[in-house]
Write a protein that binds this DNA or RNA. Structure first.
Length: 638
RNA sequence: GCCCUUGUAGCUCAGCUGGUAGAGCAAUUGAUUUGUAAUCAAUAGGUCCGCGGUUCGACUCCGUGCGGGGGCACCA
C-alpha cells in the first residue's frame, strides 16, 4: 500500500506494489514515454524496480543530468555488447558515463582501428533496433567472482572485490548479454535513440595506475536528439578553430621545433604580446609594493638538495655538468633564489612584509606525453613572487594578493573566476598550530573574495595550504592559472630569519604566488579565449595603414610613423595588391584597426578606420585618431 | 613515460596495390594603380622527418629513432 510522494509535494496512494514506470504512467502518459530512470528517497533506481513501501520519487528524463548520464551509461553497455560480438574474447574493464559522453575500457591483444569503430557503431545500431529488454539480477559475491574467473574476465573479478561489503552485486542483462554493473539502466536498448557517435580510441591504465597494464579505451558521445548531437560536434569544431597552436602559426606568433621539444620559439609578434603582458604585470606589481629581482638560472646542486627539490623532483630537473665535473641544476622554481636574496643582510620585522618578485624563466623536464602547445611546456616564465612575512601578516597579505589577481584577470577579460582551496595533506611538515593559522588566513581570503569556491580536503602541498585561481573562458572552459601558497617549510630549511620586535630571531613565513602562472600558458589561454582577436591594448600589431594606391604611399608612411611614435604598434602595407586583397589579408590576421588612406584622407589630413569584424567606415582627423587611440592603448583599469 | 595515430614545397593538402613527386595559397618577377574580405600572367621552390633493412628499384613495404596529434599517467 505504498504512498508515493512526488517532487511537487503531492502524493499518490497505490493499492498494491508498483514499478516506477507504473507511477510515471499514473502521473502522465507523456512522462511515462520520456521517463528513463528514477530516484527513490534520493537513490537512483531502474524504472522497473518495484516499490513496496512509502517513499518519495523523482522520475528523470533526458532533460535531467541524471537522465542524460543514464542514456550514456546504457550506450556504453551497448558499445561493449557490440565489441564483444565483433571481437569475441575482448575483456571488459569499466565503462562509465562522463561529461558529454561515455567510454569503456577493454583488454584485447590487437588494437582497435578507426575502421573498427565504424563497425562497432553499426553493430550498436542493430542492438538499438532490436530493443533488447533490460533485466537486473542480484548475484552472490563468490558465485560472481567464480563465474567471471572462469570467463577469464579478471577485471570484473577485481571489480567485485571493490564493491563495499553489504552492497548488492548486481548484474544487468540487455537481452542475453550482461555486465556487472551498479546501474541504473533504461528499460531496453532502444531507449538510447540513435544520436551517438564513437569518437576516439585511447590507451588508459587499469584503475588509472601507471604500474598497471594499459587497456584500450573507446570514447563516444550520445545525445537525446540529433540537434543536440550536432550542436555538440559543432562546439568541438568551434573549439578547434580557437586552438592556440593553429592560431599561433596563422598569426605568426610562435613556433615549436624538434630541436627543443616543449620550448617556444617566439616570433616578433608573439614576443611583443609577451612583453606587453610583462610590462603590464610589472606596473601592477610595482604599484602593489613588490621589489623585482633577478636570480641565476643555474644553481649548484647542493642548494637544491638543501631545499628538498632534488630529492622530490630531481627526475624532472635539467642538470648541467661543467668541464670540471660539477653538477648544476637549471632552476625549476625561483623560490630558493628568492630566499637567498632575502638572506642577504640582516632582516628586521620592520622589513616585513617583503615582497620579492621576478619574471623567472624556469625549466622542468616534463614527460613527453604531457607537452601541449603553450599550455604545457618545458621552459616557461613565471610571474613569480615570494612574500616574506610574519604569521600575523598572512591574512592581510593573502587578501591583497587575491584582490590583485582578480583585478588583473578582469583587465584581461576574465570576470568569471573560481577558487580552489586545498588544506593540509596527511604527509606534511610544520606544526599543526601554524597550519591552523595558515589555513584560516587562506580561507578568510577565499571568503572575502565572495567568489564561488571549492574545498579540496587534503590536497594542499606538503609544505602548506594553497588557493588556486581558476578562470572561465569565453566558451565556458576552466583554466587554472594563478596560485597562492603558504610555505611553512622552505624558509626554515634555507635558514631564513629576521629579528623580531623583542630582539629574538624568528623564521619568516613565505607565501608563494603567481598571478598569470606561466606567461606562456596564459598567452595560450588568451589566444583561445579571444580566438586570436585580442583587445586593442594587448594586440601585438594594432594598426595596419593601407594606401589606396602607390600615389598615397608617402602619406601612409607618414601616418604609420606618427602612430608608432605615440607608442602604438603599426605597420604600413605598401605591397602591390588591391584594397580588397589587403583588407581580407589583414582581417584574417586579426589586426584590430585598418587605416585606409587615399585622396580624400590626404586632402583632409585624416584616416578612414575600419575595425576588425565590421565593414563600417569611420573617417577621423589624424591628430584626433592619435589622441583617441593612444588613450585606449592601456589596460582598462589604468 | 605508456597506448593509438601521424610526419610530402613557407602554409593547407593530393599522390591506388613499390618505377626518385603534384595542386591551391604564400614567395619572386612582370603587367595592373586599384575606395572596403582574394586582379592577371610567368617563374622559382622538395635529402617526401632521421637512420638501417627488404628489393633491380622505396615517398610508398619492414625495423628503429625523433617530432606532432588524441588519450592515460604526471604537473613543485
Amino acid at each position: 500500500m505504498p504512498l508515493i510522494t512526488l517532487p511537487d509535494g503531492n502524493s499518490i496512494d497505490f493499492p498494491n506494489k508498483v514499478t516506477g514506470l507504473e507511477v510515471a504512467e499514473k502521473i502522465s502518459k507523456s512522462l511515462s514515454k520520456q521517463a528513463l530512470i528514477m530516484s527513490i528517497d534520493g537513490e537512483l533506481k531502474d524504472l522497473f524496480s518495484i516499490i513496496e513501501k512509502d517513499c518519495s520519487i523523482k522520475i528523470f528524463t533526458s532533460r535531467d543530468q541524471e537522465g542524460l548520464d543514464a542514456i550514456r551509461h546504457d550506450t556504453t553497455h551497448i558499445m561493449a555488447m557490440a565489441v564483444q560480438k565483433i571481437f569475441p574474447g575482448t575483456k571488459l574493464a569499466i565503462g562509465p558515463a562522463i561529461k558529454d559522453g561515455f567510454y569503456y575500457d577493454f583488454y584485447r591483444e590487437d588494437p582497435f582501428t578507426p575502421k573498427d569503430l565504424e563497425k562497432i557503431e553499426i553493430a550498436m545500431k542493430e542492438i538499438v533496433e532490436k530493443d533488447e529488454i533490460t533485466r537486473r539480477e542480484v548475484w552472490e559475491r563468490d558465485k560472481t567472482k567464480d563465474h567471471y574467473s572462469k570467463l577469464g574476465e579478471k577485471y570484473k573479478v577485481e571489480l567485485v572485490d571493490m564493491i563495499p561489503e553489504g552492497n548488492e552485486v548486481s548484474i544487468y542483462y540487455h537481452g542475453k548479454w550482461y555486465d556487472l554493473c551498479r546501474g541504473p539502466h533504461l528499460l531496453s536498448t532502444g531507449k538510447i535513440g540513435k544520436h551517438f557517435k564513437l569518437t576516439k580510441v585511447a590507451g588508459a591504465y587499469w584503475r588509472g595506475d601507471s604500474n598497471n597494464e594499459m587497456l584500450q579505451r573507446i570514447y563516444g558521445t550520445c545525445w537525446p536528439s540529433q540537434k543536440e548531437l550536432d550542436d555538440y560536434l559543432k562546439r568541438i569544431e568551434e573549439a578547434e578553430k580557437r586552438d592556440h597552436r593553429k592560431l599561433g602559426k596563422e598569426m605568426d606568433l610562435f613556433h615549436f621545433r624538434e630541436e627543443s621539444p616543449g620550448s617556444v620559439f617566439w616570433h616578433e609578434k608573439g614576443w611583443k604580446l609577451f612583453q606587453k603582458l610583462v610590462a603590464y604585470m610589472r606596473d601592477r606589481q610595482n604599484k602593489a609594493g613588490y621589489k623585482e629581482v633577478n636570480t641565476p638560472e643555474i644553481l649548484d646542486r647542493a642548494l637544491w638538495e638543501k631545499s628538498g627539490h632534488w630529492e622530490k623532483y630531481g627526475e624532472h630537473m635539467y642538470t648541467s655538468k661543467t668541464p670540471d665535473e660539477k653538477i648544476f641544476a637549471i632552476k625549476p622554481m625561483n623560490c630558493p633564489g628568492h630566499v637567498q636574496v632575502f638572506n642577504q643582510g640582516l632582516k628586521s620585522y620592520r622589513d616585513l612584509p617583503l615582497r620579492i618578485s621576478e619574471f623567472g624563466k624556469v625549466h622542468r623536464y616534463e614527460p613527453s606525453g604531457a607537452l601541449h602547445g603553450l599550455l604545457r611546456v618545458r621552459a616557461f616564465t613565471q610571474d613569480d613572487a615570494h612574500i616574506f612575512c610574519t604569521e600575523d601578516q598572512i591574512t592581510e597579505e593573502c587578501l591583497i594578493v587575491t584582490n590583485l589577481i582578480l583585478d588583473i584577470y578582469k583587465d584581461l577579460g576574465f570576470e568569471n573566476v573560481i577558487l580552489k582551496y586545498s588544506d593540509r595533506p596527511d604527509l606534511r611538515v610544520g606544526d599543526d598550530n601554524v597550519w591552523d593559522k595558515a589555513e584560516k588566513a587562506l580561507l578568510d581570503a577565499v571568503k572575502a573574495s565572495k567568489l564561488e569556491y571549492t574545498i579540496n580536503k587534503g590536497e594542499g602541498a606538503f609544505y602548506g595550504p594553497k588557493i588556486e585561481f581558476v578562470l572561465r573562458d569565453a566558451i565556458g572552459r576552466d583554466w587554472q592559472c594563478g596560485t597562492l601558497q603558504v610555505d611553512l617549510n622552505l624558509p626554515g630549511r634555507l635558514e631564513a630569519s629576521f629579528v623580531d620586535s623583542d630582539g629574538t630571531k624568528k623564521v619568516p613565513v613565505m607565501l608563494h604566488r603567481a598571478l598569470f602562472g606561466s606567461l606562456e600558458r596564459f598567452i595560450g589561454i588568451l589566444i583561445e579565449n579571444y580566438a586570436g582577436k585580442f583587445p586593442f591594448w594587448i594586440a601585438p600589431l594594432q594598426v595596419v595603414v593601407i594606401p589606396i594606391s602607390e600615389e598615397f604611399d608617402a602619406y601612409a608612411k607618414e601616418v604609420n610613423e606618427k602612430i608608432n611614435n605615440v607608442g602604438m604598434n603599426s605597420e604600413v602595407d605598401l605591397k602591390n595588391h588591391n584594397l580588397n586583397y589587403k583588407i581580407r589579408e589583414h582581417s584574417l590576421s586579426k589586426i584590430p584597426l585598418l587605416l585606409i588612406c587615399g585622396k580624400k584622407e590626404v586632402d583632409s589630413n585624416s584616416v578612414t578606420i575600419r575595425r576588425l569584424d565590421t565593414n563600417k567606415q569611420e573617417n577621423m582627423e589624424l591628430n584626433l585618431f592619435l589622441k583617441k587611440f593612444s588613450a585606449l592603448n592601456k589596460a582598462p583599469s589604468n
